[in-house]
């Protein structure tokens, strides 16, 4: 039996008003996404993206993934968006918010995106039989522990993602070095 699955409902605490919160958070996320791609002002787009990121973190909490939700808030909303806001303020060209916002071939882009959406919808309707009816309830209390077991390994063996974890740290190091070198005035 997979230790990740907890057959008790909610792990001892019943979830409350799931439908209401799903529609609220999902609606907020999509509204935020719409605002990101349509706002003229880049700071408004950044603030809408923060709303989207926080709603998606809430959706993670509803999917019994508290650790991913915490990482999302710390890294995405608290780190990456601060970086975006800094850069927006550094490159704030006054004329950019008065120029044309959408490029010349925007109808083609819109058609391509709608085709993609139609593809997704047809995949969902045709493949509905693939999804099992029962929504499994993951054990929320030991979520961090189990993710740590997968990342770091347990009982002396390497976990399935230990190597990927080390490579990810190398990736971050390379990104730090790249960002520092690219923004230096004299290399």
């Amino acid at each position: 039996m997979n230790p990740a699955i907890n057959t008790a409902v909610g792990g001892g605490m019943a979830p409350v008003a799931t439908t209401f919160f799903f529609y609220l958070l999902g609606g907020l996320a999509i509204a935020g996404g719409l605002a990101v791609i349509t706002r003229r002002n880049a700071v408004h787009s950044a603030l809408s993206l923060i709303v989207t990121l926080l709603s998606v973190a809430g959706l993670y909490l509803m999917l019994y993934a508290p650790f991913v939700a915490g990482v999302q808030i710390i890294v995405y909303a608290g780190g990456i968006m601060v970086l975006f806001l800094f850069v927006i303020m550094l490159v704030n060209v006054e004329t950019s918010s008065k120029e044309r916002q959408f490029n010349r071939i925007w109808p083609i882009g819109l058609v391509a995106a709608c085709t993609l959406l139609a593809l997704f919808m047809s995949a969902f309707t045709k493949g509905k039989a693939l999804f099992p009816d029962r929504m499994v309830t993951l054990a929320e209390g030991s979520n961090t522990q189990q993710i740590a077991n997968m990342l770091y390994g347990e009982a002396g063996r390497m976990g399935p993602y230990t190597f990927a974890f080390e490579i990810a740290s190398l990736l971050l190091l390379v990104a730090i070095l790249g960002a520092v070198i690219m923004t230096k005035k004299k290399i």
Binding site: I50, G70, I73, I74, A77, G78, G79, M81, V82, L85
Partner: peptide
């Protein structure tokens, strides 16, 4: 995480 939102 939440206290890092105060920076925003």
């Amino acid at each position: 995480g939440i206290s890092s939102l105060a920076v925003l």
